[in-house]
């Protein structure tokens, strides 16, 4: 049962992810992204990680994709004229793709070689309390750093998107 569900969700997730890339229509792409995220949430549920599944749906499916759609509809994107690929983009995309594949392959093979290490990872349970304790004790510094990065990104977006023309704009 669980195996069957895993295969269903995995195929569903990947198919929807492909739909994001290959759809001509931006709204349909965003909806495929939504379905793909729901599929990932399903995979988390199969792993008994209910909190991650719920947070994924709440933050990404519920808010981020809705914002995507809002932007798409506000800008009324109809594809538009895209620039042709230049040599620089071809080279850089090949390098980036190669790095991504190398990373994935090494990740997969290392995972096969060191499966025993997985067993040594301390089990902290999937309850809300276990997550919270880990986040506020062991992983406090990374959490703070990520929060700080997000703050910087937010400030950057405000600075970049707002056109400062006169002194009265800076309030």
């Amino acid at each position: 049962m669980s195996d069957l569900l895993f295969h269903l969700f995995a195929v569903f997730t990947v198919a929807c992810a492909l739909g994001v890339v290959f759809n001509k229509n931006a709204v349909a792409s965003a909806l495929c992204l939504l379905l793909s995220l729901v599929g990932v949430a399903g995979l988390f549920v199969l792993l008994d990680a209910f909190l991650l599944a719920v947070l994924l749906v709440l933050v990404y499916a519920g808010a981020v994709v809705a914002l995507f759609l809002f932007i798409i509809m506000l800008l009324d994107m109809q594809g538009g004229d895209r620039k042709r690929f230049t040599k620089a983009t071809l080279v850089s995309s090949t390098v980036a793709g190669g790095l991504l594949i190398t990373g994935l392959v090494s990740f997969a093979t290392r995972g096969l070689n060191h499966t025993t290490i997985l067993a040594e990872v301390p089990v902290v349970g999937n309850s809300l309390r276990a997550y919270a304790e880990q986040l506020f004790t062991v992983y406090l510094l990374p959490v703070q750093i990520v929060g700080f990065l997000l703050l910087i990104a937010m400030l950057g977006v405000i600075v970049l998107s707002k056109k400062f023309e006169g002194l009265e704009d800076i309030k």
């Binding site: 909190l51 719920v54 749906v57 499916a61 809705a66 809300l128």
Partner: peptide, 15 residues
Amino acid sequence: DVGLLAVFALGSLGV
């Protein structure tokens, strides 16, 4: 365990 969050998560799909 995450009852209310689950309600919020599913409810947010209503948009």
